[in-house]
């Protein structure tokens, strides 16, 4: 039984997520007291009963049109937000790449930011020391690593951020639509690295609109449609069905 549980990296169990839409949000006490009846509140149901089990070592793509709940599901998995109903269990160290360079300090150098960013992912100083050269090499920033991040171009910025996140050595990697940035050379390198991680048995969940690259990388695709799982299975088949409807 115990072993059975460990087989899965992520278990999403009947998850609902409802966002409260508050117009004229009362931020102050006065507004709260005076307008407590007048606040217009709407609800937006983003996820409606998602059931998903992702096995250890699986590479899963979440596909779907804008607003279908892909990013919300990813955010729920990282515990940035919490489900309205249902549970999500994750097994193992988890790193998410929802937005690149979150938590970068503009005035710090690239090297300092590596330390800062990696510590946000839960690494200790020693672990970062061991990886820092690898991260710098991967980012191909060279001597710019000693310059403040605010002097970076957006491509350099993104390369550094991606290099940190991908070298964290997590068991589960969640990636949200970020591989579209960077030049062809770096993109290829990122996919090569993802392939490598995949081979080493990491679990990867990726949200992407770039279907060809998803098809190459992932063994499984989940098509979300209006907050529900519409299709789940072999990547090529799911994408084909998806394209029939939405293409």
């Amino acid at each position: 039984m115990k072993k059975n549980e460990n087989e899965y990296s992520i278990i999403v169990n009947d998850v609902y997520k409802r966002f409260k839409l508050v117009y004229d949000k009362p931020f102050t006490l006065k507004e709260r007291l005076i307008f407590w009846k007048n606040t217009k509140v709407g609800y937006h149901e983003v996820l409606k009963g998602i059931d998903l089990k992702i096995k250890q070592g699986e590479t899963v793509a979440l596909i779907g049109v804008n607003g279908s709940g892909k990013s919300t599901l990813l955010k729920l998995m990282t515990k940035i937000i919490y489900p309205t109903k249902g549970t999500i269990t994750t097994n193992g160290k988890l790193t998410s790449l929802l937005e690149l360079g979150a938590g970068f300090h503009q005035d710090f150098t690239g090297r300092e930011n590596i330390y800062f960013n990696a510590s946000i992912f839960g690494l200790t100083a020693k672990e970062i020391d061991a990886r820092v050269q690898e991260i710098i090499d991967f980012s191909e920033l060279g001597e710019f690593i000693e310059a403040p991040v605010r002097t970076y171009s957006s491509g350099m910025y993104m390369r550094l951020a991606f290099s940190v996140a991908i070298n964290v050595d997590a068991d589960i990697l969640l990636i949200d639509e970020i591989l579209a940035v960077g030049d062809q050379h770096f993109q290829d390198k990122c996919y090569a690295k993802l392939e490598e991680l995949k081979r080493s048995g990491k679990t990867i969940v990726i949200v992407s609109h770039s279907l060809p690259s998803v098809k190459k990388l992932c063994d499984r695709a989940v098509w979300l449609y209006k907050g529900e799982v519409r299709e789940d299975g072999n990547t090529a088949e799911v994408i084909e069905k998806y394209l029939e409807v939405c293409g």
């Binding site: 990282t78 515990k79 940035i80 988890l94 998410s96 979150a102 946000i120 839960g122």
Partner: peptide
């Protein structure tokens, strides 16, 4: 707020 919305820690 900015970082809380983007990363878990």
């Amino acid at each position: 707020g900015g970082i809380i919305k983007k990363v878990y820690f």
